[in-house]
């Protein structure tokens, strides 16, 4: 009885410590995010002089006006939307087309094909040979270079295959075969309608990945009007390339500097907000994707 009581007390202590730790996690993760939003809407003098700690000091939306009036940012946004939309369509289609045959044990050569896919996870031609290939295909500095070379993620093919194998039962397949339904028709009219959730997961994976990555653009693109948002962001936020036209109405140099600083916070908010706002609604799909992927297939 007394040992039971003791353990109960230690459990209560454990719960307290655990709750504190989790609260601390929330604080640590949320603080930088809140700070950025606060800084972006604060008076730029307060930000520069270090008066902003958590909540906004003063209220000034000039930074946002500057961001939205900058043409390259808008072009980058539209380009990224295009790459994300078309790229996701291409990627998800190819992934499904690869995953379906690999999921059917009736496909006698599936292990050979699986091996070919898996091998590219272990070994690759590397940066320069891939670059030279893209160049010789005439895709340098075109939108194709953003859509095709990395369209298929082998890991995503494996996850999709695992999902199809566990949801599309053999009975269903055999029944369809009895009716004389071929694989092409089976895929289009039975598998795809039944795989809504894995398609959603894949769309999200590819979309977020395309939206956030900059490497392909860095190596394949030269024209500014093709740049995705991430490259524009890099040029402004990290390389500090801003052209004079961007903050032209402000004449005083000091004010210009202060505004440029705060503008960076505004730019971070503007570029990250779409994903962070959609995220709570699609979170469960991501979790699902991770879980399917963790099933060894």
């Amino acid at each position: 009885m007394s040992s039971w009581k003791k353990s109960l007390r230690s459990d209560r202590l454990f719960d307290m410590v655990n709750t504190t730790v989790l609260m601390f996690c929330i604080l640590v993760v949320a603080y930088p995010l809140i700070y950025i939003v606060s800084a972006s809407i604060s008076d730029h003098k307060a930000v520069v002089s270090g008066k902003v700690w958590l909540l906004p000091v003063g209220f000034d939306l000039t930074a946002y006006k500057t961001v939205f009036s900058y043409g390259l940012i808008l072009t980058g946004y539209l380009n990224s939307l295009f790459y994300m939309g078309v790229g996701t369509l291409i990627s998800v289609t190819l992934t499904l087309l690869a995953a379906y045959p690999l999921s059917r044990k009736e496909f006698t050569q599936r292990n050979v094909f699986m091996g070919l896919f898996l091998f590219t996870m272990l070994f690759s031609g590397g940066l320069i040979p891939t670059y030279m290939l893209v160049r010789s295909l005439g895709m340098l500095d075109t939108r194709w270079a953003m859509l095709l070379p990395n369209a298929v993620g082998v890991w995503n093919v494996i996850v999709t295959r695992t999902y199809l194998r566990s949801t599309i039962g053999d009975e269903l397949y055999e029944a369809a075969a009895m009716e004389g339904c071929g694989d092409v028709r089976f895929l289009v009219s039975i598998v795809i309608p039944l795989s809504g959730s894995i398609i959603a997961v894949m769309c999200l994976y590819y979309a977020v990945w395309i939206w956030n990555s900059y490497f392909d653009a860095l190596i394949y693109l030269r024209s500014r009007d093709l740049y995705p948002l991430q490259i524009v962001l890099r040029n402004i936020l990290i390389l500090n390339q801003t052209d004079g036209g961007m903050i032209k109405d402000i004449s005083v140099m000091a004010r210009k500097q202060g505004l440029a600083d705060v503008m960076k916070y505004a730019l971070i908010v503007v570029s990250s907000a779409p994903l962070l706002m959609i995220y709570p609604f699609v979170q469960r799909h991501f979790v699902k994707g991770v879980m399917i992927g963790s099933v060894k297939g």
């Binding site: 956030n212 962001l233 994903l275 995220y279």
Partner: peptide, 11 residues
């Protein structure tokens, strides 16, 4: 805690 995962590397 899952939120920062959606922030791009550039940001």
């Amino acid at each position: 805690t899952y939120m920062p995962y959606f922030i791009s590397t550039v940001v």
